[in-house]
Amino acid sequence: MNTRRLGRTDIHVSELCLGTMTWGSQNTEAEGHRQIDMALEAGLNFMDTAELYAVPGSPQTSGRTEEIIGSWFASSGKRDKWILASKIAGGGSKHIRDGRRPDGESIRLAVEQSLSRLRTDYIDLYQIHWPSRGHYNFDNSWTYAPQKQQTADVLGNIEDMLETLGALVQQGKIRHIGVSNETTWGITQWLRIAEAKGLPRLVSVQNEYSLLRRHFDLDLAELSHHEDVGLLAYSPLAAGILTGKYADGTVPPGSRADYQGGMWRLNEHSEAATQAYIALAREHGLDPVQMALAFCLTRPFLTSVIVGATSTEQLATALGAADCVLSPDVLAGIEAIHRRYPRPI
């Protein structure tokens, strides 16, 4: 398994990262443990979770994923084999601190709770799950309104969070910091304030990226190049759409759309684009899942692709993407389809 440098640190993470967000809802503890074992055997050293998981987040499920990871650490004694990433919820989830946005006080509390659930004394990468000020990620790009933000409040909140994160780094409870679902301006402010105040520097941004969602190709790619803030790509299969299993309106039993009662990424635009990508993969004798993941791995700003699965069979297919090399003809075909369907979700 190839590795890539995490920001400007001395840490190198596997180019595939084990996603965990279904453990504790769609997956049992035993299934989560089997996936950890399987990923470790395949050469992965990077695993991502969050206090909100398992999804959909609820009083019954949130925190359960971290507990499953913690029980694996405790039973295996192999905490040192993993670079572990977790996140604090970005606010608005009423069952997590009454929906309070992250600030210095809530970060201290969230880190202590995550450490307890994970049964570890440190988290390698601690991330802010989403900006509380509003952002264009998830399904928000159609209603994004940055003109409503209060600049002084946003910057004061970032500084408050950075000061606490810096103290936690000094205490050894977290090693590095990152953000998720962030914008170019937002990342720039995190970097600017950190430099001015001598506080920890962002090492990564975890945003959605796939054949169907390529926002990162533009100004975020420029920032990533110049500032060494690499992308941790989540939903590289667009929550399963790029597998083709939702073709022609099909919702397979046990799928994410079935489990959650629908999915915003599914629409007539995403279906047309998906059909084109699957046809391209089959034309070249490729597995559509591996082609989609391998494409992400070709991007110059990419640090790691987060792959999640609800079965070991699905995980095995995803892990095979590490050995999938896309020809110039395949890459040209992908760009031609992207030109036709630039914003399908």
Score class of each variant (00 low, 15 high):
residue 187 I to A: 13
residue 186 G to P: 00
residue 224 S to I: 02
residue 177 I to E: 04
residue 121 D to K: 12
residue 182 E to P: 02
residue 180 S to P: 02
residue 223 L to N: 03
residue 198 G to P: 10
residue 222 E to P: 01
residue 183 T to G: 10
residue 146 P to C: 11
residue 142 W to A: 14
residue 234 Y to C: 04
residue 166 G to H: 05
residue 132 S to H: 12
residue 164 T to Q: 13
residue 167 A to H: 04
residue 152 A to G: 01
residue 155 L to A: 01
residue 235 S to L: 03
residue 184 T to D: 09
residue 166 G to V: 04
residue 167 A to E: 15
residue 168 L to T: 08
residue 175 R to Y: 03
residue 237 L to C: 11
residue 191 L to F: 01
residue 166 G to S: 11
residue 240 G to M: 09
residue 226 H to D: 07
residue 151 T to Q: 13
residue 143 T to N: 13
residue 161 M to K: 05
residue 150 Q to D: 15
residue 191 L to T: 04
residue 183 T to W: 00
residue 166 G to Q: 07
residue 134 G to W: 07
residue 234 Y to D: 03
residue 175 R to M: 10
residue 207 N to R: 04
residue 197 K to T: 02
residue 222 E to K: 11
residue 192 R to P: 00
residue 166 G to C: 06
residue 213 R to C: 05
residue 212 L to C: 08
residue 194 A to W: 04
residue 151 T to Y: 09
residue 204 S to Y: 01
residue 138 F to M: 13
residue 210 S to A: 10
residue 232 L to C: 11
residue 142 W to R: 14
residue 209 Y to A: 09
residue 178 G to P: 04
residue 147 Q to C: 03
residue 220 L to V: 00
residue 193 I to H: 05
residue 218 L to F: 12
residue 196 A to I: 08
residue 134 G to D: 04
residue 231 L to W: 02
residue 123 I to L: 03
residue 121 D to T: 12
residue 125 L to M: 06
residue 194 A to N: 06
residue 119 R to W: 00
residue 174 I to H: 06
residue 183 T to E: 15
residue 185 W to C: 00
residue 214 R to W: 00
residue 216 F to L: 05
residue 226 H to L: 11
residue 171 Q to T: 01
residue 195 E to W: 00
residue 136 Y to V: 02
residue 216 F to V: 13
residue 207 N to W: 02
residue 156 G to C: 09
residue 168 L to I: 08
residue 164 T to A: 03
residue 179 V to M: 08
residue 155 L to W: 10
residue 230 G to F: 01
residue 161 M to N: 13
residue 236 P to F: 08
residue 182 E to D: 15
residue 233 A to S: 14
residue 176 H to C: 08
residue 196 A to W: 00
residue 140 N to K: 14
residue 170 Q to V: 06
residue 167 A to Y: 01
residue 146 P to Q: 09
residue 126 Y to I: 10
residue 172 G to E: 04
residue 196 A to D: 12
residue 143 T to A: 10
residue 211 L to Y: 06
residue 189 Q to L: 01
residue 224 S to Q: 05
residue 204 S to N: 12
residue 168 L to C: 08
residue 191 L to D: 05
residue 141 S to M: 10
residue 219 D to H: 11
residue 223 L to K: 03
residue 143 T to D: 11
residue 191 L to H: 03
residue 191 L to V: 07
residue 162 L to T: 04
residue 170 Q to N: 14
residue 120 T to S: 15
residue 177 I to G: 03
residue 231 L to Y: 06
residue 123 I to Y: 06
residue 140 N to C: 11
residue 174 I to T: 07
residue 201 R to G: 02
residue 155 L to Y: 15
residue 179 V to F: 06
residue 201 R to T: 12
residue 215 H to I: 07
residue 192 R to M: 10
residue 192 R to V: 03
residue 215 H to E: 15
residue 151 T to K: 15
residue 235 S to I: 06
residue 211 L to C: 09
residue 184 T to G: 08
residue 227 E to R: 14
